[in-house]
Every structure is written in structure tokens, then in C-alpha cells.
Amino acid sequence: MEQVLKLRNLKVIFPSHGGIIRAVEGVDLDIHQGESVALVGESGCGKSVTSQSVMRLIESPPAITRLDTLEFNGKDIKNYTHKQMQDIRGKEMSMIFQDAMTSLNPVMTCGKQIDEMYIRHKGVSKKEAREYTIEALKLVGMPEPRSRAKNFPHELSGGMRQRVLLAMAFACLPKLIIADEPTTALDVTIQAQVLNVLRNMQKKHDMSLLLITHDLSVVSNIADIVYVMYSGKIVEKASVEDIFHEPYHPYTRGLIASVPKLSDTEKEFSQIPGTVPHPMKKPNGCYFHPRCQHATKQCKKAMPPLISVGKNHEVRCHHPLKDMKKEGKA
């Protein structure tokens, strides 16, 4: 499989009033052709910063970014200029944001905003672009695409706006789609629809997908590879089967257990105690140890390295948990 994205040792910090916010601390990311990769973590863990760094959307100042390698599609885009990046964005990699209302221009019709993509990157005429647009809207399951294209964003419902964003992102059939919490603001029924479209489009056109989310239930429906991120570091990386059937990191287990399920019968929900550490005051040693039931002295002292525990399965833990049944649900 051809490698679409290769990111090595990404570090991002934000200097601010009280000190330095350590947003991302050395993240490696590999995405291959046709693969969908999920980056999972709670808010503040640096997952959005990582995805925006891939798009080179993090501005400096305020941020300071360091990375060893950023290869996209075989090209080293680490030192690309703003203009070179603009040619890639939208055409070869595109992004879907969580908040459809603020990522669409409120004074332009939705159709026109999609037209722009075709006119810019494909160099077609306005009329042709509109035909493409309507085709694209049809593909993402928009009812009555021809008349909806003439609507302004505020005239559409949340689900429809998200579809417009999907159509825009898929417009030029990019190699890589980055979806940052694409369904968080939506109702469950609409969420299912949007995820369906996202998955079908991705599989059909053999695109790669980087999905950013805090919700593991979304991941189980769409991803091939899962990266679990905690406080700026990758704590576990594995295939989706391994993540759900054989999670090694206590945090991953906690995340899986905390998803509310219809099959649950107890009134008590299993929870991860405590909160994410403040990005300026991270604990010594393993960042997860204050919330970890299995923490030992070693965990308080040193940050564990990312060790391999199986085929394509890495975990950052001093005491990786093996048997899920024996330990119970973390």
C-alpha cells in the first residue's frame, strides 16, 4: 500500500500568559492509501492541533512547531510555502470541521461555495462547476440537490450543512480527508447518516481518512487503524479489532467502557476517574498515572516509551494490561 501521509515527531507548544502549553509532544502518524485512521482522545489532548499541523494550518505565532518529517503523497511538504500549501489544500487533502455553521460562508449560497472548489482546482467554467456541484450533492445524499444548492447555509438544517461540507471536501476527490469531529454536534439519527456517507465515499474512491473524535463508538463504525492520544502523546496504536478486543492501555479500556451501550444493564456507568491534566501542569512520569488504577512507583517517575506488543500494536505503558476479562473493565 502506498503511504499517503508520514508524520514524524510532531511537537507543538503554545506560549501563553501562565507558561507554555504543551499541546503535542512527539506524535508519529502513518496513513496509507485507502485506509481510515482515527485519532481518539478527550478535548485538550492535542488531537485537533495534530490534524491541523498536518494541513499546516497552525500559525506561528502563537504556536511553535517542530517536526522531523512531514511527507504527503511522497512529497516532503515540511517546508512548503503558504502558496504551495494552498494548491494542495482542497485538491489533494481537505478538511471537514465540526461546526458546519462557522466553516461555511454565511453570505454565499452553498452551491456557490462548492462551485469555487471546482473552478479553483479543476479550472472549469461556472456552468460546468454547477453541474459537478449538483452531482457531488447527490453523492452525499442531499435531497433535491439542484434547489438546495441555491440555499444559504442558515436555511439548511445541521445535517444538511454537514453534507454540504462533505460535498466540498470530496469535491476534488482528494487523497486524504481530515474530518475533525464531523458528527459531534448532530443528533444520533443524523450522525448515522453522515457517517454512512463519509464511509461510503471514502471506500468508493479509495481515499484515506483521518478521523478526529472523542467518541469511540464512531470509531468502531468507520476506522481501520486507531491512535489513542492522551495529553499530547500517543498512548496506544493498533488496528480497530485490536483496540476493541485487546486493549492494552488502561486509558483505552476506560474510554471503551465509558461509551454508553444499549446492552448495558447496570445503573452505574463505568467511568475514568479524574480529569485530563492541565496542559501547563502535566504530572511527572506517565501523564495518565493520577487517573490509573494500576499506577506504580515507576509510573510516577518515568514516562513509558511506546513499546510494541503485537503486530502493528504499540502501547505506551509500563504495565500493559493483557487479559481484559481478568482485569475487568478497567
Partner: peptide, 25 residues
Amino acid sequence: HALLAAVLDTTIRKDRKQVILKGDI
């Protein structure tokens, strides 16, 4: 039924034909 079908949990169903409710309210 539709609401129940829309609930996602942690079961891996990558190639499932998802049961969904069409359209918006």
C-alpha cells in the same frame, strides 16, 4: 426503532449496511 438503530456502540461493524432513518425532522 429508528432511534435504537442509530445508537452507535463499540461493536465493530465496518461493512455493515447501517440501518438509518432518512431525511431530517
